[in-house]
Amino acid sequence: MILNINKKQYTVDIQGHETLAEVLRDTCGLTGTKMSCNEAECGACTVIINKKAVLSCITLAADVEGEEITTIEGLSDGDNLHPVQQAFLDHGAVQCGFCSPGMILASKALLDQNPKPDQNDIAYALDGNICRCGGYLKIFDAVRAAAEEKSSVKDKKV
């Protein structure tokens, strides 16, 4: 079976019951995707599938063949961090970092759908992602900043 992860083809030999989180981590070696509860309650395993934030711990790998899967490893462009990653770094939105891959991908998925989210939109989009270290204020700052960065880049292009 072939999985399309971060625009690369991964040929994987998997069992039917294996979750995407397990396959990403154990078979593909993409350990940036974390697992903290393994029962769809914490958001640490969030990846993006076809532009939508999805919990990879309750997604069967076999179900996403042919879909476009983005993990945290696929977000930066070489040395250049994605604006959401950069904003998380700049705004101190990362402490232990274990929730960060999921949090960053959930934020990216939000911004792709809603480029100018208000505080409420951000809180609702991230409510499935637990951060235990720092609370959510700095994460909100980061997402807002990334949104501004994105819109200013767009303005420049226009």
Binding site: G32, T33, K34, E73, S76, Q86, G92, F98, S100, P101
Partner: peptide, 23 residues
């Protein structure tokens, strides 16, 4: 000064290695 975290890039790119990731 609020300098960026020394391990920050590893953390936001998923490259930081936790014991959880050790194989």
């Amino acid at each position: 000064k609020s300098v960026p975290r020394i391990d920050g890039r590893g953390l936001v790119t998923g490259q930081a290695k936790y014991t959880f990731d050790l194989k």
